[in-house]
């Protein structure tokens, strides 16, 4: 027999699930005209975004490229650094350092993205302008650099818990043979925790791809096709944040922004689903 409380809680839980579905549905409805009039292929691969011109040009290819470039760039830096930090915390750091660093990492996640963006824009961008005599220092690279710092704590805490989930027997059995801790880590712990570590990196990627403020303030906001890591660009979230307020409700421009939002949503959602699949597999895995 289910109790009243249980039924109530189940109901609320279902509502939250439905909310997520309704977000997808709603965004699809709001952007319907774009998919039918412009067509998905032309919208996603199109390189020109000019919603006020005649005829309107709606293509988010450059923005998608910028998003991928910044997020992957951040990952290239954050993944190795994060893994090393996690290994340090889980296996090598003395107790007092761990006790200090772990809460500190939690605090890093508490610093809002606008502050990261602001610091990046005033410190990093200035640095590039002064030292490399650029006219303006914003670039996809700057955005990647700040995103690296932002996703680092997520990658660290997820991979640390993956490493800690390795049963202590493996450590004992290896160390009792006389091998060193680095050898143990590289040959036993990392292979054993690899699913969790990969999950941590995917998590970081999802965070980096969906982040708005840092890229808005650092990527330079120009709609040219990015040709290198150091060119400027406008990732999807920045486009939405910049143009939503000025677009006329119901216009194709407005709907184009929702279509862009939907693309971003589906992209990040599939990353998260992949992650859920990973965790599910791990829980039912042999180890």
């Amino acid at each position: 027999m289910q109790e009243k409380t249980g039924t109530f809680c189940l109901l609320v839980a279902w509502c939250s699930t439905l909310l997520l579905m309704s977000i997808i549905l709603f965004m699809a409805l709001e952007s319907w005209a774009v998919w039918t009039e412009v067509g998905p292929l032309k919208f996603i691969l199109g390189l020109n975004w000019n919603p006020l011109a005649e005829p309107q040009q709606l293509g988010i290819g450059t923005m998608i490229l910028s998003t991928l470039w910044t997020a992957l760039g951040a990952l290239i830096m954050a993944a190795p650094l994060g893994l090393c930090c996690a290994i340090f915390l889980a296996e090598f750091a003395p107790g007092w350092i761990t006790n200090f660093l772990r809460p500190a990492i939690n605090l890093l996640t508490g610093i809002p993205s606008v502050v990261y963006g602001f610091l990046g824009a005033t410190v990093l961008v200035k640095f590039f302008e002064v030292n490399f005599s650029m006219a303006s220092g914003e670039s996809l690279f700057c955005a990647s650099l700040v995103l690296t710092v932002m996703v680092l704590p997520y990658i660290i805490s997820a991979s640390e818990s993956a490493l800690r989930a390795v049963p202590p027997e493996y450590r004992q059995a290896s160390l009792a043979l006389g091998v060193s801790k680095p050898y143990l880590t590289l040959r036993v712990l990392i292979p054993l925790a690899k699913k969790g570590l990969l999950g941590a990196i995917i998590l970081g990627f999802g965070r980096a791809a969906g982040e708005t403020m840092a890229v808005l303030m650092l990527a330079g906001n120009t709609m040219v096709l990015p040709t290198s890591w150091f060119s400027k660009g406008e990732p999807l979230p920045a486009l939405i944040a910049l143009e939503l307020g000025t677009s006329e409700v119901g216009s194709l421009h407005y709907q184009g922004l929702f279509a862009a939002g939907l693309v971003l949503l589906i992209f990040v959602l599939s990353i998260n689903l992949l992650l859920a699949l990973f965790r599910w597999n791990r829980r039912n895995g042999v180890n």
Partner: peptide, 21 residues
């Protein structure tokens, strides 16, 4: 050198452990 000691005196534990290799 603890590793030298552990090499000369081997220890097998209660739980059978297969390393991921």
């Amino acid at each position: 050198d603890t590793s030298w000691v552990r090499k000369r005196i081997g220890l097998v534990f209660q739980t059978p452990i297969a390393l991921p290799l």
